[in-house]
Amino acid sequence: MKLFVYKTLVACFLIFVLFHLTIGYTLRSYENEIKNYFSKDKINFFKDKIRIEIKDGLEKERILSKEDSILMNKFFEKISKELKNSK
């Protein structure tokens, strides 16, 4: 009985250590990386950045260059034509 208890306790402890050195460590590293990557400050920073870019864009005379606008116009027309034809 005594030996069984001690062996069980030691086995549990070793499993715990092994788990945390392998799976636990990997899981926690990924979890931490993801959670820290999408932190509130970063999200707010990028939100503000987008807002500023849109504001700047609105203040400009043109957002796209003439060549880009012609190119995109042709592109969207082609897409819409293809979508219509698919019916």
Partner: peptide, 17 residues
């Protein structure tokens, strides 16, 4: 809160081992 640790910012709930 954010914790500055070893030159990096971490959320205090998600600190490295």
């Amino acid at each position: 809160p954010v914790v500055y640790f070893n030159g990096d910012f971490f959320q205090s709930k998600f600190l490295p081992y």
